[in-house]
Design a protein around this nucleic acid. Sequence first.
RNA 1: GCGAGAGUGGCGGAACUGGCAGACGCGCCGGAUUUAGGAUCCGGUGGGGAAACUCGUGGGGGUUCAAAUCCCCCCUCUCGCACCA
Length: 820
Amino acid sequence: MSTHYPFAEIEPRWQQYWEAHATFRAEDPPTDRPKFYCLDMYPYPSGDGLHVGHVEGYAASDIVSRYQRMRGFNVMHPTGWDAFGLPAEQHAIRTGVHPAITTAKAITNFRRQMKRVGLSYDWEREIDTTDPDYYRWTQWIFLKLFERGLAEVAEAPVNWCPELGTVLANEEVKDGKSEVGGYDVVRRPMRQWVLKITAYADRLLEDLALVDWPHSTLLMQQEWIGRSIGADVDFALEGIHGNLRIFTTRPDTLFGATYMVLAPEHPLVPALTRPEHRAEVEAYREATARKSDLQRAEQTKEKTGVFTGSHAINPVNDERLPIWIADYVMMGYGTGAIMAVPGHDQRDWEFARAFDLPIREVVSGGDITQEAYVDLERGVAVNSRTPDGSFSIDGLRAAEAIETITAWLERLGRGRRAVNYKLRDWLFSRQRYWGEPFPILWEDGAPVALPEQYLPVRLPETTEFRPRSTGEEPVSPLAALTDWVNTTDPVSGRPARRETNTMPQWAGSCWYYLRFLDPKNPRRLVDPQRERYWMPVDLYIGGAEHAVLHLLYARFWHKVLYDIGVASTPEPFMKLVHQGIILAEDGRKMSKRWDNVVNPDEVIDRYGADALRVYEMFMGPLEAMKPWSTRSVEGITRFLDRVWRLLVDEDGAASRALTDETADPATERLMQRTVKKVTEDIEALKFNTAIAQMMVCVNELTKLERRPRAVLERLVLVLSPFAPHLGEELWRRLGHAESLAREPWPTWDPALVVEDTVTVAVQVNGKLRATLELPRDTGQEAAREAALTDERLRKYLDGATLKKVVYVPNKLLNLVVAPR
RNA sequence: GCGAGAGUGGCGGAACUGGCAGACGCGCCGGAUUUAGGAUCCGGUGGGGAAACUCGUGGGGGUUCAAAUCCCCCCUCUCGCACCA
């Protein structure tokens, strides 16, 4: 039989208590209490149920929430469901079951599981992105974007996934495959809704300075935005009218241009292609168009391209430069055309080598017969003067040369300073059923916004969820619902057709953190007083897989909401932490395929929710990837059992060792140190070492014959955020009628945490030879005397001369002696 | 290829601004109690060595009285980007 404490009885009982007493209800303003907004990335309610990886992040934020409540903060700790998405839709396509049904079932299961873990959410604020009362505000934000010209229909090269029958955002494509499903993705020009996130590129980049986020995530966002500063330069074209505009970050190398390259898709290509090259150029363009991004990327080693037969004129020296097309230049960046400077750009160098084009040195310092020389710090411009000698940058270093030549181009009207971004506008429409409909009507080929009072535009019922796209034409499943599609403009009374695309998965999660603050408001997205009180989110915990996608999109929407006065802070999430991935016991990723997935329900059945929480927090640093170990869960139950037995005897009665006497100084000091360590570690999210300290404390307390109540109470309080059910139960058994959820967090006295005597390591020539017990803050003289008279050190010191003494008070004494 | 992070006992992991390497837990070894234990309690547990000692934080150099920690070179792993002009 088991000797575990009765978690199976305790845990549901306290969960009911919390629910019945609305223990974790957040208090909306007006209030004088300081707030703390602690947010989890809310889950997608998949049919697989909660994963131990969810529990890791949720337990961490729950510990912080419970801790902050005890410190007197008014804590906002909500959750909900990011419920639009592909898995439910794919399931619907396979089975014919409506995604709303699948989703409702999954939500019921998730909610049950999350309550079972004992998470201190304010469940009255639960939201569901598929609820029309929620998505009417998602649509409302879209209307604001549309009004401000930030949402438009554009003909643009898009990522088309024939298998999924839908287009995808750049961020949803990995290595030329769809992130969901791993299907081939090809680039094609199509008319689709795009959101002009590029208009916010600068602010998205610069405001990263305002947030406390992981270094790697900041870098990923910076790289994704990818700002480059340089110049646009116009090259005249020989034989045809107009200019060829290029972007370069190295205008100082303009004298080194020996050819030009256009992306194969560049609109000037047909006009520039001479008849004798037409066949070759057409063949190359078609071959490029057929390639997926993956195939195009695979061929990074070998440069390919064809000559168009035309020439451009270099504005700085009137040289004739042959114009090529090559797929190493992309239409999506800059102007889709470059000047090639093979001496100082490795890609151009490789292309020039492959096609025997001239390589010219205009920056000295390298050996351009071996590779392109690109050193911006040391290189000095050479061979860079106009034929008539009126202008030269020879002798200048890159920074100065760039500045000088850009100013000169501006005066000539042949170029100007320019900034480019890797960030593309956000492709926002999907040919899917299970998403938010657009609040848009089409009349005479133009999109018309539905006025606000006609929201929400409800997702219509259907039984056919499959995209109706042919290989060529993307068609949403909604297009088949002609009764829904054909409608009347409520303003003009004219016939209109509804937009049949839906919004992408990310839309609902771009602003959900605002709706928690006022989840039932029928008139506003969020009440301004509430928004000003609660925002920004103080701590946001979630997976690193959202480092660019969700976190960039949400920041973009937030800034738009800030601009229209709905949000009061420039950034939504002040501190961000990613929990690490939990691997299976075998060291692989948990996967149904390997049959190594740990189910939280089973762990709770066997060991209890508190054991699951404490174990996951004890595994290692929150942000680290770490393997599951069921043995170690058992170790945690041993620890929790020991805590239980500190207070409860085997017969279930209060421990007979309990005493109201004051603690002896050593026990009091131990408790003081434990409170200090646990407090500081929770603040730093170092839960593993906080738990280790509590284990040390419990191990010591176990040895005592008399256990002072005043010490045990503090132990229960500091343990309670980690193991809340056990905490509440023991608090009750210590004679308290109320929940400990708002009991003041224990404090410590800095004077009481220090020991009277300290162990000082004594080294001789840097090697540890002994340790000395010395009174705290012993001076160097006294410490040295103690060492010199110590028997253990005699043999190292006898006959040697003391050359130097290094003393770190209360830590270490190093005696440096000369050899005998 | 570029960028970021990380390599510490049999395992997960500790170690403040350089200052006793291995906290805490798992596992293992021994003991106590027990009809028994896969329960509980006590003790031990980096390697070598009988010991004195000695070697040890991916590898190799260096700085320092003192290096897991700082510097240089190299190796491995994880993540991100992947012709961005």
